[in-house]
Design a protein around this nucleic acid. Sequence first.
DNA 1: TGGCTGAGTCTGTCAAGCGGACTTATCCTG
DNA 2: CAGGATAAGTCCGCTTGACAGACTCAGCCA
Lengths: 163, 163
Amino acid sequence: MNEQVPEAMSWSTENCTISRTMEILGDKWTFHVLRELFVGVRRFEDIRTRAGVPRQVLTDRLAALIERGLIRRHPYRLPGQRERYEYRLTQAGLDLYPVLVAMIQWGDQYLPLDGGPPIEARHRGDCNAHVTVVLRCEAGHEPTPRDVVLRPGPTAKPRALAG
Amino acid sequence: MNEQVPEAMSWSTENCTISRTMEILGDKWTFHVLRELFVGVRRFEDIRTRAGVPRQVLTDRLAALIERGLIRRHPYRLPGQRERYEYRLTQAGLDLYPVLVAMIQWGDQYLPLDGGPPIEARHRGDCNAHVTVVLRCEAGHEPTPRDVVLRPGPTAKPRALAG
DNA sequence: TGGCTGAGTCTGTCAAGCGGACTTATCCTG
DNA sequence: CAGGATAAGTCCGCTTGACAGACTCAGCCA
């Protein structure tokens, strides 16, 4: 372990899980769209007006999210109108909840508003308690961020070092 | 509660914590840069080559992250060279660990690679166990994503409904 | 003096986002 | 059946930002 060359410099980012996840989520609008679905807004026009997404971008992102399996189209019909489609989270989409909650938690801590948060994650039903996210290791400890390290896993690819 | 008009449609996204957090993080490259810092790569050239960020974009994102207080510049000097600066996470930056771990966890589940993950979060030191993120409410339960709801908080802003 | 190196800035090209107008399909009303 | 309403798009032209590649700058060393 030489401080001059961090260990990470010797492996590649090519197949990095974070990169691959960000291919799907790492876009300004995609996350806005997901937020709408998480709070229960599922229709094209509603998502568009509430999130302020340009129509074309919304069309595009919805298609991408369907293709990636995070959401699916679901038919509905308002009385006196023709059948249309709304968009709902799949299990894969729902499983992004920890990411969302972690972001809200960070925002509440570092970008607080006077008077409290504008949005809260709560345990559904009678409990109704505030929900947060905690780091936990398989041995049952709950390490602080400083006690966590990111290390190369079994499929980490070596990387040619310049020089 | 009318299925036709989701509750969320009656409040605004204007001051939403997720939006405000995404102002900072919701950018393809910002997250790549943060990943490099999390794995211990701290120098301009190293970040640039490992993450593949265009120079100008890197300059720009580093400046934004400094301004937002997620990282700071730190002087260093290699033997026989002049003093330069590297970039390190502040406490605010480090506290994004849950977001990062949540993303890795989701990616490991829904975008798995044959042979296992290329990157792993572990408990630093002797423990070395795999670290994940769990949802937990203040009452001590650990709800599944389906048992969590996002609700307006004390500072949620009402929103004019069209029609 | 001149070259090396890390950390940038400068420049022209090209893709993407953007707002606003237009389109489509179906239902209801007259 | 003509005409209007509505949700969910598509089309169009403009502007912004990303991008690659060349250039700059400051200190150190031979």
